[in-house]
């Protein structure tokens, strides 16, 4: 069972659930107060606006007991994925290095963009070719990635929309991955107008769990 973690203000949880279904995985939306460590095969922190982005995007959710439990699970080897606001939460919690700050140029961006897979050795990218370019939507105002040290970049923007250093769109540490684009919104041929480039991410997780 894969937990789709939901905080007050999370709104991408049903999209993730649908993507898991399309990939043939079983998921469950888990309210943050109900999260129990050791209970799930993988965890997805979905996008949205947890706690209304107060203080900074992800900063308040990062201090919850649920994220402490996610940290314990990550240390045990459970794959953890943070999408958009979920990525911001993982960065604020220190599960991933660096910071995500307001876009440069400033403002909310919501559009389809190409991203490049530069690391296909994570639990979420193993079915992609290294260098493969896929289209995914982005929808965020605080996505400018500022690295700390030399992070392990997994996705890079082909055209940098937000001022991220080194075009970084997603980073990993061990079995934890975070990215600003929305792979769960590029999975369904009926509603995706730019292909289903996100599907392999979920199929990769399925393959990883099968091994």
């Amino acid at each position: 069972m894969i937990a789709v973690l939901k905080f007050p203000g999370t709104n991408g949880d049903y999209d993730v659930l649908r993507a898991l279904e399309l990939a043939g995985l079983r998921g469950e939306i888990v309210w943050y107060k109900d999260y129990r460590p050791g209970a799930y095969d993988a965890v997805v922190l979905a996008g949205g606006f947890s706690y209304g982005d107060r203080l900074r995007a992800g900063a308040v959710a990062a201090a919850t007991k649920a994220v402490e439990h996610v940290r314990e699970d990550a240390e045990r080897g459970v794959p953890v994925l943070g999408i958009c606001n979920g990525f911001q939460i993982l960065v604020e919690a220190g599960l991933l290095p660096g910071a995500l700050i307001p876009n440069d140029p400033p403002g909310f961006i919501s559009r389809w963009i190409p991203i490049r897979v530069v690391d296909n050795e994570t639990p979420f990218t193993l079915l992609y070719q290294r260098g493969e370019v896929v289209y995914t939507p982005v929808a965020h105002a605080e996505g400018r990635y500022i690295p700390e040290g030399s992070p392990r970049a997994v996705f890079k923007y082909v055209e940098n929309p937000n001022g991220s250093v080194d075009d970084i769109a997603g980073v990993a540490r061990g079995n934890v991955l975070g990215l600003m684009p929305h792979p769960e919104r590029a999975v369904d041929p009926h509603i995706s107008r730019n292909g289903v480039g996100g599907l392999k991410l979920w199929l990769s997780l399925k393959e990883w769990l099968r091994r």
Partner: peptide, 9 residues
């Protein structure tokens, strides 16, 4: 303690 700022930035 509460990380009112992200020390990275």
């Amino acid at each position: 303690e509460a990380r009112l700022g992200n020390p990275n930035v």
